[in-house]
């Protein structure tokens, strides 16, 4: 049956062992790609002709911002899978995603405002992308605290999944409304990171860090997922075997 992989992915012991075996590889690959990207981006890529060396924070900021959205989408998808097919492991994935995604969002916000200091002379200028990122942070807060709020963890999981799905539908609306709002109140500001023709020496390190962040996301997800599964399945008999077999 071609659906067996799907059922396997729904089984906590299988997922636990899978996460344990691929986690280290993901960490290693992430270290390599992020290492290359950061070194090449910070030391070898040419400085930007307008922004000078300040632009180099893009190598952390842009991938973090990208990952903040991807992690949210992953969380909503995992929640949807868990709700629709009643596959409990989906809730564990969603619960594991949320803090990682929130951390990427925080990283994007911090690097964005660090970049803003030399560019605008202030840490926070209500730049539309940063504002959307801030609202995304609030969405993460909502999902995370809703999951914690219920005495019954199953109920917390499922309400958090609904909220994540509602949020993911809203993310594009928030994004465009904030852009529209910004065009209303501010004239043309420095279009941030809008560089369609980035030379290869700048672009390759960026893509490498992006790939590295994805791998890192996967790696941390594996670690967190194992913790989630251990906590959720603490009553099951396979846990003892899994822990003693290592």
């Amino acid at each position: 049956m071609k659906w067996t992989w799907f059922h396997k992915l729904g089984s906590p012991p299988y997922v636990y062992r899978l996460a344990r075996s691929i986690g280290p590889w993901l960490y290693a690959l992430a270290a390599l790609t992020i290492g290359y990207g950061v070194v090449a981006g910070l030391f070898f890529a040419p400085a930007d002709y307008q922004q000078g060396d300040a632009f180099r924070i893009i190598y952390v900021h842009a991938p973090a911002a990208w990952m903040s959205l991807s992690a949210y989408t992953t969380m909503a998808l995992a929640g949807a899978v868990a709700l629709i097919w009643r596959i409990k492991i989906g809730h564990a994935v969603a619960a594991a995603c949320a803090p990682i995604g929130a951390s990427f969002t925080l990283a994007a916000l911090i690097t964005g405002s660090l970049w803003g200091r030399p560019m605008w002379g202030t840490f926070w200028a209500w730049d539309p992308r940063l504002t959307s990122e801030l609202i995304l942070m609030f969405l993460y807060f909502g999902v995370m605290s809703l999951r914690q709020a219920f005495d019954d963890p199953a109920r917390g999981d499922r309400t958090a999944a609904v909220l994540a799905i509602v949020g993911v539908v809203n993310v594009p609306i928030i994004h465009y409304s904030v852009q529209w709002w910004n065009s209303l109140h501010q004239g043309a500001t420095v279009a941030k990171f809008a560089k369609p023709s980035m030379p290869g020496s700048m672009l390759w390190p960026l893509l490498s860090v992006l790939l590295g962040f994805m791998l890192f996301f996967g790696a941390v997800l594996c670690t967190r997922l194992r913790a989630e599964v251990l906590n959720r399945e603490r009553q099951s008999s396979w846990i003892k075997e899994a822990l003693s077999s290592r």
């Binding site: 609030f138 969405l139 807060f141 909502g142 949020g167 809203n170 409304s177 904030v178």
Partner: peptide, 10 residues
């Protein structure tokens, strides 16, 4: 409020 206010920003 924590849930609804971010959704109501647009």
């Amino acid at each position: 409020s924590l849930i609804v206010l971010p959704l109501a920003m647009p």
